[in-house]
Design a protein around this nucleic acid. Structure first.
Lengths: 233, 233
DNA sequence: GTATATTTGTGTTTTAGAACATAGTTCTAT
DNA sequence: ATAGAACTATGTTCTAAAACACAAATATAC
């Protein structure tokens, strides 16, 4: 019961965007239908071809959305940070998932039935517009990503990924180390290259004093150069 | 005046999806604010970094949405067929356009002020959901496209593009020729390859009796093999 | 209808990045 | 705490596709 109470508090205070837009009645319905699910590191949240049923909001932890491509080679499509929503696109498109989601590290995810969300947003223009905006922003990012991944060279793609990770998860207290603990393989599948190439290019960046590496921790030394490398391709 | 009348008729009968969802009052407002603009072959409809102001619906003709990538190399992001909407994403995301749009061939485009559309959809759940669905479908396609363009080889990418063109614009009366007149360069920038590679691979497909070529006209002879090549990468 | 520009086709060279191999290192589960 | 698995690192080889070069064929504009 204490646990239940805690969840309720989490939900109302941790869904700021959606919560703000609802009426009291809607909030009550949402409160009694939402649940919080915990995932361990590397645990799957949903699978490619699953049927989408719930809107998910990441409360804590880090999540990757990925696709298995040609010959099982997997590709990270986007990364989710706390208080971001995910898992809703396929439901709206009336499709099964075309991606899978996995916890990079242990996570708490709030799940809200999509039927509820659809019912609310058909009555609530602000909520509808909130989703329209999220989808529009994501579609713009996806369009940009197509060009970045296909036209930039490995150095440009890796530089871009490092900057994206910094953008999403921020820096540690030293103001330089990217706040994520990522295998080289994940860095590779985020940057569309082989693991060898990610390792090699990372080493080059270290030699050029653009970054410093301590195991999986990456410290950005010369962010300006990273930006330049990312821009130039 | 006769011309004006004609436009009005076109608008009500050619915007089936949106029209159906509006009230009579909304229809009246829309009718008096929509305009039809004609574009000649290769004319630009909007430019990268322009400010989006209008929802566009292609009434007739063919349109490409493209981005200029690294070193000016342009990449076709998607192609628009008649009765498809476009140009609205950036407005919803509160961004300028990140893509440009150009007429493949002479076009008639219906333009509706985006403010109007936003006002309507905030009041009209069905209209809002219509846009949510379009955006969701497009985002799914974009995610798929990232993997296709980065992981498939030239043959797979070209096969896929040919099938996509057939899907969008259909076949001519012979039931085999793709109903579009496209330069090799456009075919290349749709398939993310150089023009030389598009030409060469097209020739290979001809030698393998998968397609036949007459100038820019492409006839699909063995669609099954195209599908197979596209799937296999 | 002719001239000029653009597009198409093909051969050759070059190169970025994949594939492969192998050793050392670091996780992780029991 | 230790064994086994997974990850990291680096060198070497191989290959798909880009870059380049140049005819030939078509389009487009005047």
């Amino acid at each position: 019961m204490a646990g239940k109470k805690k969840d309720v508090i989490d939900i109302s205070s941790s869904l700021p965007d959606i919560w703000r837009m609802l009426t009291d009645a809607e909030r009550e319905i949402l409160r009694s239908n939402a649940r919080i699910v915990h995932f361990k590191k590397n645990e799957l949240i949903y699978l490619e071809d699953d049927t989408p049923r719930e809107l998910m909001c990441l409360f804590s932890g880090k999540v990757k959305i990925f696709k298995s491509g040609v010959g099982g080679r997997s590709q990270i499509i986007r990364i989710i940070r706390p208080i971001q929503y995910f898992g809703y696109r396929a439901y709206f498109a009336r499709e099964n998932y075309v991606t899978a989601a996995m916890a990079f590290e242990s996570c708490a995810v709030c799940m809200i039935p999509m039927e509820l969300i659809e019912r609310f947003l058909r009555e609530n223009g602000n909520l509808a517009f909130f989703f329209i905006q999220m989808l529009s922003v994501d579609l713009g990012i996806a369009d940009q990503r197509v060009v970045n991944l296909t036209q930039k060279h490995v150095r440009g793609r890796l530089a871009e990924s490092l900057l994206a990770l910094k953008e999403s998860y921020g820096l540690e207290e030293d103001g330089a180390t990217i706040n994520i603990y990522l295998a080289r393989e994940d860095l590779a599948s985020l940057s569309n290259m082989t693991t060898s190439n990610a390792i090699r290019t990372l080493s080059n960046f270290v030699n050029e004093r653009i970054i410093a590496i301590d195991g999986r921790k990456i410290k950005i030394i010369d962010e300006e150069r990273l930006h330049k490398i990312s821009r130039m391709g």
